[in-house]
Write a protein that binds this DNA or RNA. Structure first.
Lengths: 206, 206
DNA sequence: GAACCAATCTTTACGGTGTTAAGATAAGTT
DNA sequence: AACTTATCTTAACACCGTAAAGATTGGTTC
């Protein structure tokens, strides 16, 4: 019994691919995404980048949209962890809330094309891609919980409105930064101070 | 001298087109845009809709992007007039501000694909298309003036931040509604009451 | 009027795209 | 070893953005 012949080592075997191409397509897609933008991203290009023929992706994703949905899902996971990172260790509910917003905006700043993909028209009606829906809902629920913690005695309706307002504020700022309509600086520190100034305008995190 | 042979009547002459095709391309583009979305909009499709060959648009627009820029410019004009409409007749600066925000969101609600095009990645770096830049700046300046009127004694810096926050809030709400992530109702009245609730969260229009 | 010019439109063509259908190869199972 | 199944390739289709070259038109000048 030889050692290396089982599929123990999923690296590039010469002939047919047979590693986990699915994963490699997603990472290649993310790579090309930040380089060329959503519009410049082609399925054939991803296949090329992965060193595989043009039709190969169709054995792992039903569609180009399905691959983009997988990339977007990874994006939402990254968004959530970025929010968690910046809100960790906050001593007040307001500071925690501010951290969530800062993380949201920082993520958009650092992954502009990915952020655009995540909120693009493609998934506006996302009855397919349920795992995308759940992971996106996770990100949203972090915000919701943060808002609720800031207003202990508020009614359900008040919390909903405050939550929608907070989400809109943070999402709009991210979008405007990504689209270069607001200049919030060039470093992550710049972005964070900008985020703090912005979110301070809401009574929630005051 | 015959009457109808001059280009007095720019309607469809049978053979070659010779009306103002440029205008017709823009309106045909807007029509297809709301039907098929930005991604589903093809230059060939626009030419087809205008009843003209596929290469004809290139005599009026340098590019597909140039046509989209013209459509987007019309969009910003519409956005400005919608904001003007909803803020007209307000008696206080705060009410005026609220009207501007409501108009912004209502426009997005009523022209989702156009709104997406206007803020798409295509014009993020818009050193070309200067008329697009100016008409977009007009919309922004309406917001800026509204914010400044709400805070007479504020410093330049304070006004800028309040302005960015207001813009972010309103823009984010529009984007989230267009992307179906926030359900703000189905009628324009629904949208307006939603907009009022949201903007009331900002100290500017309190 | 005729001759010319510039603008506008068409036909044709090229390379790129998403996607499907048919065949080749590898891995796993009996 | 034979068979099955998953994976990958090649080839093809219709569509797209765009450029080049030719046709048609309206306007201008004699």
């Amino acid at each position: 019994m030889r050692m290396a012949t089982k599929q123990k080592n999923p690296s590039k075997s010469a002939g047919y691919h047979h590693g986990d191409l699915k994963r490699e397509l997603v990472t290649a897609g993310r790579r090309l995404l930040e380089k060329s933008g959503v519009e410049g991203l082609s399925l054939r290009g991803v296949a090329r980048e992965a060193g595989v023929s043009q039709a190969a992706p169709y054995h792992h994703f039903e569609d180009k949209d399905a691959l983009l949905a997988a990339i977007a899902a990874e994006g939402f996971a990254g968004l959530s962890s970025e929010m968690a990172k910046w809100s960790a260790g906050a001593d007040t509910a307001g500071a925690h809330m501010g951290g969530l917003g800062a993380g949201y905006i920082v993520f958009a700043f650092e992954n502009p094309e990915l952020f655009r993909l995540m909120h693009g028209p493609r998934f506006a009606v996302a009855d397919r891609y349920d795992d995308l829906l759940t992971v996106a809902a996770d990100s949203f629920n972090m915000l919701r919980d943060g808002v609720a913690a800031c207003r202990p005695g508020a009614s359900e309706k008040e919390i909903e409105i405050a939550c929608q307002a907070a989400w809109s504020l943070v999402h709009g700022a991210s979008m405007l930064i990504v689209d270069r309509r607001i200049d919030a600086g060039t470093t992550v520190d710049d972005i964070v101070t900008f985020a703090n100034q912005i979110t301070k305008q809401l009574p929630v995190s005051g």
